[in-house]
Amino acid sequence: MSNINMSKEHIENARMLIRQFHNILPVKVGSIASKLGVKVKISTLPTGISGEIKKEDNTYIIKVNRHDVKERQRFTIAHEIGHFILHKEMIGDGIVDDALYRSKLSDRLEAEANKFAAEILMPWDLIKSKIEEFRDLKNEELYEALSKEFEVSTTAIKIRLGKL
């Protein structure tokens, strides 16, 4: 089997594992990391740095900036899980993401990690279900209600819904 097929298999296996956590909101992103064998540490990071993933002693560790709000921390963890699953071979000495989720990696790879993070935290089937549940809410009220349910920012919800 080629490396590309193994990589696709690896990604699909990770997605299947993640789907196991899509039955309760908010999605337990820390538990997903743990199940993947990745440790999460809430840390003091330099201003403007939201998170990083590094390999230390054969263990991958995600560090999340303790000064960021909870919703931001959750997205950062999911984003770094995205790097772990999609770009593991590129982590090397570590990937450090700033507040706009930019790193030394290309914009394309950062966008892939962001999209994967959105899939982890805001799965479409749960979004559709919640939109139906909140059918009386419109626009900002709907985005606020969804952001509370999913414990993500309203900006993350709007991006996921294609409103930004």
Results as ranks from 00 to 15, higher is better:
Lys63Trp: 00
Asp97Cys: 15
Pro46Tyr: 00
Asn65Trp: 03
His67Arg: 14
Ile53Ser: 00
Glu80His: 09
Ile77Phe: 05
Lys35Phe: 10
Pro46Val: 04
Lys35Cys: 12
Arg72Glu: 14
Val64Ile: 14
Ala33Ser: 11
Asn58Pro: 07
Tyr101Gly: 09
Val38Asp: 00
Glu71Gln: 11
Ala78Thr: 03
Leu45Ser: 08
Lys39Phe: 10
Gly48Asp: 07
His79Met: 08
Ile53Trp: 01
Ala78Gly: 08
Ile85Arg: 03
Phe75Cys: 01
Gly51Ser: 11
Leu100Glu: 15
His67Ala: 14
Ile95Arg: 05
Tyr60Ile: 03
Ala33Leu: 05
Glu71Tyr: 00
Gly92Leu: 08
Ala78Gln: 00
Leu100Thr: 14
Thr76Ala: 13
Val64Tyr: 02
Ile61Gly: 08
Lys39Asp: 14
Ile32Val: 10
Leu86His: 00
Glu71Phe: 00
Met90Trp: 08
Asp98Glu: 06
His83Trp: 04
Val96Ser: 11
Gln73Arg: 14
Lys55Ile: 13
Met90Ser: 15
His67Cys: 12
Thr76Val: 13
Ala99Lys: 14
Glu89Phe: 09
Lys54Glu: 05
Asp97Leu: 15
Met90Lys: 15
Asp93Arg: 10
Gly92His: 05
Ala78His: 00
Arg74Pro: 00
Lys63Asn: 10
Val64Gly: 06
Ser50Glu: 07
Gly48Val: 03
Gly37Trp: 07
Ile77Ala: 07
His79Lys: 02
Lys70Arg: 10
Gly51Tyr: 07
Gly82Glu: 04
Thr76Ser: 13
